[in-house]
Nucleic acid binder design. Structure first.
Lengths: 149, 149
DNA sequence: CATAAATAGTTGGTATGCGAACTATTAACA
DNA sequence: TGTTAATAGTTCGCATACCAACTATTTATG
């Protein structure tokens, strides 16, 4: 049996890739990477956030986040300042350019936004069923195994 | 509305991460990376395969695959030879060490294998329903949008 | 208060992962 | 047959992405 060639697995991978492709379409339009777009989006919604908070919300490590932020600052899309309250911390907010890029990516032409809206309109019963089965799968995937010894 | 904080989206991301964690557990046990483990697994099942074929089956570009293979050859887990039939092509097969590492990762202790087996035993009706809804979502995600102009 | 411990970010090293440009070989065709 | 196409891999530059080690600052504790 080919473990890596499983109908269910493939289904999850396909959707994962499709979602990423849509985000990439938006990001490309604005000359951004997907993770850069996500970062701008998050900071736009929570200005003056710190690095750790941002990293946590995007499920990245601080070191990865630090690099992403650094490149966004270099490109002039992000403003990074030392927090006055805690001189170890930084505060992040978009520059004018950053706001504009974000708008380019997430505006009316956004493929991702449109499709997510479509999916939101899905039959609630189907959605509940889906989430329920996903939960079953998550339980199987994350349950600590018993010892057969 | 926070597009990146969607119940369904999060559900997919969670499962994706859980699957990856399980594979990583197996890979770590053998001192491999996840993609290295996948590569060894595929080559074990289809010895003497070429680079392009391997890249396609793992949904990676040739350039990425080339690097992964190169590091596996350097670690002595993979044998790379020039094909006698086509001198442009290479043939790949596991070394003794490679076979052993693969066994370490996918043997009886494999978390991934166990869980996939568990999932396979899922209620067929639930599984069908899941695949059907996934298909609906895929259709939404990949359908070319109509012009409202 | 002074030192230890915790916290916020950064940096260095390695491994994906991609696209583009490249080499070498084989196939196609004028 | 000889030039052009296509094909198989590799290499380069860049951006994630992780961990471990580091600096700087703040908090906790003797």
């Amino acid at each position: 049996m080919n473990l890596l060639n499983n109908e269910l697995l493939d289904s999850f991978i396909r959707i994962q890739k499709a979602l990423y492709s849509l985000m990439k379409e938006d990001a490309d339009r604005a000359g951004l990477t997907v993770v850069q777009l996500k970062a701008l989006y998050k900071i736009h919604r929570s200005p003056n956030t710190g690095l750790r908070e941002l990293a946590a919300s995007l499920k990245l490590t601080n070191s990865t986040m630090s690099g992403v932020v650094d490149r966004l600052v270099s490109s002039g899309l992000l403003e990074r300042e030392i927090s006055t309250a805690d001189r170890r911390a930084i505060t992040l907010k978009l520059t004018e350019d950053g706001e504009q890029k974000l708008q380019e990516a997430t505006g009316d032409d956004s493929s991702f936004t449109k499709r997510i809206m479509e999916i939101t309109k899905m039959d609630p019963e189907d959605k509940d069923h889906l989430l329920r089965i996903h939960q079953q799968i998550m339980t199987i995937l994350t349950t600590k195994e018993e010892n057969h010894s």
